[in-house]
Amino acid sequence: MTTREPPLRADARRNREAILDAASELFARRGEGVQMDEIAERAGLGVGTLYRHFADKQALRAAIIGRRFQAMTSLARDAEQVGDPWTAFETLLYGYLRSAQPDAAFRFALLGPEEPSWGDIDAEKTAFATIVERIVRRAVDAGHLRADFTATDFILITRGALANMTGIGDWPRYLTLQLEGIRATGQ
């Protein structure tokens, strides 16, 4: 269980957001080779300020993922309100991917060579995963998804689509092929 940090002062919150924005931009353009001092400079802050917020690049990547998971959780809550189980599932799946498409830093953090530090963003990940599980279970129970489909399979499909979000990738086509394979027979 993670302990909640006290709320940040307004200036500290602005600094943290500036760091995350700068890191997202630089990671998206240059990947893992970005140095912490470059991130601080891009954010218009001193490197000491950056290190007060984030001990290392792993913590910074976790915060980028955590920030995106917060947005994804809101999207998942909206999808869960959709009455039809299949439409709710598709709304979640396409919404997740459309939201991730312009966020190259998020995609890199999830698909990069190092496993993200989930402990730093456990609450955000758990909130999102709980809703995904309910949406998936509802679609399975309604006979729209194959009986052995799980929330873990949702992750596999999204990672495949994320990996195809390159200049030449066609993630919507990839997703169409995947959806045809996971629909329950007779649908």
Rank of each mutant, 00 (worst) to 15 (best):
G31L: 09
R77L: 12
G181V: 06
D56H: 11
T176A: 15
G169T: 01
T185C: 01
F128R: 01
V82C: 07
D37H: 13
G33A: 14
W86H: 08
P113V: 12
L45G: 03
I135G: 01
I121F: 00
R183K: 14
A79Y: 00
E124T: 04
T150N: 01
E25Y: 09
R137T: 15
T176Y: 01
G83W: 08
T73D: 03
E38Q: 14
R9C: 05
D120M: 11
R9N: 11
R68L: 08
G186A: 06
E133M: 00
P102E: 07
T126M: 04
G169V: 02
L156Y: 13
A151Y: 11
H144V: 13
P102C: 09
T2I: 09
A123S: 13
R14T: 10
F154D: 07
P102Q: 05
R14M: 12
T73W: 00
P113T: 15
R14P: 02
D120N: 10
R14C: 06
L110I: 10
F27G: 02
L93N: 02
E25C: 03
D141L: 10
E80P: 03
S117Y: 10
T87S: 14
R134W: 00
G44I: 02
D122R: 13
A109E: 02
L175Q: 03
A18D: 15
A105E: 02
W171F: 05
